[in-house]
Amino acid sequence: MDDVAKDLTAGTVGGAAQLVVGHPFDTIKVKLQSQPSPPPGQPPRYAGAIDAVRQTLAAEGPRGLYKGMGAPLATVAAFNAVLFTVRGQMEAVLRSDPGAPLSVAQQVVAGAGAGAGAGFAVSFLACPTELIKCRLQAQSVLATAAPAPAAAAAAATVAAAPAAAAAVKYGGPIDVAKHVLRSEGGTRGLFKGLFPTLAREVPGNAIMFGTYEATKQLIAGGHDTSLLGRGSLIMAGGLAGASFWGLVYPTDVVKSVLQVDDHKSPKYKGSMDAVRKILAADGVKGLYKGFGPAKARSVPANAACFLAYEVTRSALG
């Protein structure tokens, strides 16, 4: 098995581990991001992450925390294979001799370059995958968003129509894809939110891979990290995951609100319009809805991802 095939295999295993560990946190993040601002004087649907977990478990059971996992699971192989394969190839380019260890600076360059280059590539996989995932995760929030009372006037009923239209009930990932392709502009509809996805993946992955390599070098006390134990790899992966969201989180909020926006009566005209309206409605904190679950997810999920990758890659020789 050549190096590319090894990176493909190890990247797939790492991605699966990341998804299984992190998806419940991601579900709560998307629910918090997509819940509409409440009317004046009314509380939001979810008071916070813990309340979102409690309500989700009460209404949907533990399976509710894993809604939408089918779409990313189906593409996790391609997604992480691209990331880790590009990283492996960049390391090979930077080595002076085959098998020679890289310096700290070279490791960081390889990690950051792979993150940026692969981040661009995987955005085109991530965007439709995450649109499907977010629709499934958020539909219970949208279904109960600002319902009109039964005795309300006709005007109130008409005003509530966009919310009802947005509350499409999907049977699963294939159902979402069929609906988008049929009713939202064909293939183009699956790439709604591509710009904020690019704005998240390119710098976010550059920071994450750079942090991972730099942390391994720091723990090892030099450029040779081959002897690091699993505990050290978990620590490096966890720190790398935490670093991902520090700069790019608002782009993820914008991506999510665009992807769950109603196609027939859209609230947002595009990314910049979404930013303006979020700031007007909720201030800067609106761009950080769900930040707690995202950070809580990033540490264990990425620790699992990098550990699974390293262990698998080492086992393949």
Rank of each mutant, 00 (worst) to 15 (best):
G186D: 11
G186V: 01
T187M: 04
T187F: 12
T187D: 00
R188I: 02
R188H: 10
L190E: 15
F191S: 03
G193T: 03
G193L: 01
G193K: 01
L194M: 09
F195W: 15
T197D: 01
L198M: 09
A199P: 01
P203H: 05
P203N: 01
P203S: 01
G204E: 11
G204Q: 13
N205S: 06
N205A: 03
A206Q: 06
M208R: 12
F209Q: 14
G210V: 07
T211W: 10
T211R: 05
Y212H: 14
E213K: 11
A214E: 08
A214Q: 06
K216T: 00
K216G: 11
Q217M: 02
Q217N: 13
L218C: 02
I219D: 04
A220K: 13
A220Q: 08
A220S: 15
A220M: 11
A220P: 08
A220I: 07
G221L: 04
G221W: 13
G221Y: 15
G221P: 06
G222N: 09
G222F: 08
G222K: 06
D224Q: 06
S226I: 04
S226V: 10
L227Q: 15
L228E: 15
R230K: 02
R230S: 03
G231P: 04
S232H: 14
I234A: 15
I234T: 12
G237V: 01
G238H: 08
L239W: 08
L239C: 00
A240P: 00
G241V: 00
G241P: 03
G241M: 04
S243D: 02
F244M: 07
W245D: 01
G246M: 07
V248K: 09
Y249Q: 15
P250K: 07
V253P: 03
V253W: 11
V254C: 00
V254Q: 05
K255F: 12
S256T: 14
S256L: 02
V257A: 11
L258E: 10
L258I: 06
Q259N: 12
V260G: 04
V260A: 05
D261I: 07
D262I: 00
D262C: 03
H263K: 13
K264H: 12
K264F: 09
K264D: 14
S265D: 12
P266I: 01
Y268W: 11
Y268L: 05
Y268M: 07
K269Y: 05
M272Q: 02
A274N: 05
V275R: 13
V275F: 14
K277Q: 15
K277E: 12
L279I: 11
L279R: 15
A281C: 05
G283Y: 08
G283E: 12
V284R: 12
K285W: 05
K285H: 09
Y288R: 03
Y288M: 09
G290S: 10
F291S: 05
G292N: 00
A294M: 06
A294S: 13
A296M: 10
